[in-house]
Simulated scan of single mutants.
Amino acid sequence: MEECGDIIPPEVLLSAYAQGVFPMAEEGELMWFSPVQRGVIPVDDRFHVPKGLRRALRQRPFEVRRDTVFEEVVRACADRDETWIDDRIVASYVKLFELGYAHSFECWDADGLQGGLYGVSLGRAFFGESMFSKRTDASKVALVGLVGWLREGGFELLDTQWMTDHLRQFGGYEVPRADYLKLLRGALSDLAVP
């Protein structure tokens, strides 16, 4: 994949996503991935909110906002001992955000930003990139907010890249690359990709 300077050009990133490929930084090098088994969370009625989280949601512990502090969310996702989010990744996704292709979902309380997630929106597909949580359930509440927004917008695909136990509790599952690419083509069918 071609890249230049301090950011990955937006057209390169969007074209990569449209082909089922995404970048991660590893020890200063940009690596491109297309997993053999791809993680997906359903956005229809198969999306599962765990019982404990349903109880927490009734108490409204956070105000969920979208796109108010995108770069802060990305940097909070990167703030861990091992991360694949370097300055080039941050700058590249901030540029996608400025162009309207990237979004953040944020959980706020009286003490400020407590958790959230970010990803890329293309056609009727959303590619989840990373999430973080400073308080219990904050990233989970952000995910529920994201799925609500995806449903309202008629999205068909929520790509999580890889599957984790954390994501399985929401109904997440893995699909082989070939099946994923069919889902992706369907979600991008009305789109002219850069």
Rank of each mutant, 00 (worst) to 15 (best):
I7Y: 09
G52N: 04
Y93M: 09
Q114P: 02
G116H: 01
S189R: 15
D159N: 10
L122S: 12
Y93R: 08
G128R: 03
A102Q: 08
R55H: 00
R135I: 03
I7K: 13
R124Y: 09
E3L: 15
K51M: 08
G116L: 00
H48Y: 04
R177D: 02
P194H: 12
A187W: 01
G39F: 03
M163Y: 03
P23Y: 06
V141P: 01
Y180C: 09
V12Q: 14
V120P: 04
E63P: 00
P9T: 13
R185D: 15
A110N: 12
R151Q: 12
E98P: 10
M24T: 13
D86H: 06
P23D: 07
K51R: 11
L183S: 14
S15P: 06
F105N: 02
P35H: 03
P10A: 15
I8L: 12
A187H: 04
R60K: 14
S139N: 10
L146K: 06
P176D: 11
Y180N: 11
L188W: 09
S34R: 00
F170I: 10
L13K: 09
G5R: 14
V40H: 01
R46Q: 09
R75I: 02
V74T: 01
T68G: 00
M24S: 15
L158R: 05
V12I: 15
E72L: 06
D137A: 13
L183H: 14
L167K: 12
L30R: 11
G154L: 04
G115V: 03
F33P: 06
S92V: 03
V69Y: 00
M24E: 15
R38P: 06
A56S: 07
F126Q: 11
M163L: 15
F132V: 02
W32P: 12
W149F: 13
L117W: 01
F33D: 05
E156D: 05
L113G: 01
F132A: 01
D45H: 06
I41V: 11
W84P: 03
L113K: 02
T68N: 02
L143E: 05
Q114I: 02
D6Y: 15
F126A: 13
Q169T: 14
